[in-house]
Nucleic acid binder design. Structure first.
Lengths: 180, 180
DNA sequence: TCAAAATATGCATACTTTTGCATATTAGAA
DNA sequence: TTCTAATATGCAAAAGTATGCATATTTTGA
């Protein structure tokens, strides 16, 4: 039930509505755990049924009302306990790699295209990562404790992303030898 | 339905039983797409119901009989067509990163332990990767086409793995400043 | 001879994720 | 005024994945 834990993690410091959570997920925790708004709304209700989240409706002007969720004491305790559970390694399942196992002269150009698209997407993401790091995490040693953890997650994202760019370049060169 | 495609990919060159597939998955395609034997057996039946795989029972001496699956013409066509479909980027969902967002002085030691365990696991995996690369993929440019694709997948695994080791070291240093 | 290990396959259930659909409010532009 | 976009929430069905349980054959070693 890690989506629930990801949601609670996002609610550690701020109370948020489902809509806000879904949007924030796209530029923060969602780097490491993506979820659709349907999943998020459903999970929020489950969590509040368990009394791990409190809910309150907020009347807004200029916008539809929203339901804002916040962590309860029980939620914080459950989340803190979950951190101590042991995690089995999770393999990234990636279609692209399975497709590469099927490389032939007919699909080489298509796969090059897919890799090029991924490369561009990763560059955009890296740009975002770097922006966040420069703004909020320039000197990790001096950060408050929890922010150090966030910094480390971001750091992994950046390193893996840069690595991925390098791999794309290697792949595109090798694929070019197939296309001809 | 990418598990099906991963299974068919594994059957491109060899006919295999569910048991053999499950074992091979642990040291090859399973690096990029892991599945339990239960999933594999179920998927094999689905694929053969679709006539994308053929099945035959093989009588063995010294072992229980096995059911060996092989790609049909229709299966090869379906797989080849699938390679041309476009893949959306898949985010690696990883509990450990969500847990890092919850870093505090109480759980820092536990998280260090988890990272150390992951580091060791990755080292074992890298050892395997390297062994395979040295044996089968030393000069990528001269490989037959499909093997070039497999090489690239392996190459990504190796680079990302080495990157991960470096990140683990960085993380352990920073976490040590929290524990004290 | 008995137990353990490797080989071999499978069902049932639960959980998670994806996808398609559905609805409502308000602002601002055409 | 009507349409579009952003905000906001949700249901239902299907597909995919994970987990626990169950069973059978044969070799090998104790």
């Amino acid at each position: 039930m890690a989506l629930g834990h990801a949601i609670m993690t996002a609610l550690l410091d701020d109370d948020l509505s489902g809509y806000e959570l879904a949007r924030d997920f796209e530029t923060s925790l969602g780097f490491f755990w993506q979820a659709s708004h349907q999943q998020i709304y459903l999970e929020l209700r489950k969590l509040s049924d368990k009394h791990w989240l409190s809910k309150r409706e907020v009347t807004q002007r200029g916008k539809p009302n929203k339901i804002v969720y916040g962590m309860t004491r029980a939620g914080r305790e459950a989340l803190a306990a979950w951190v101590f559970t042991s995690t089995r390694t999770q393999v990234a399942k990636d279609d692209l790699l399975v497709k590469l196992y099927n490389l032939d002269s007919a699909n080489a150009a298509h796969l090059s295209g897919e890799i090029t698209a991924r490369r561009e997407e990763m560059m955009r993401r890296l740009y975002l990562y770097e922006k966040i790091r420069r703004r909020h995490y320039s000197i990790p040693e001096t950060l408050p404790t929890r922010r150090k953890g966030v910094y480390l997650a971001l750091s992994l994202g950046i390193h893996q992303g840069e690595q991925f760019l390098a791999w794309c370049d290697e792949a595109l060169v090798l694929l070019a030898t197939v296309e001809n």
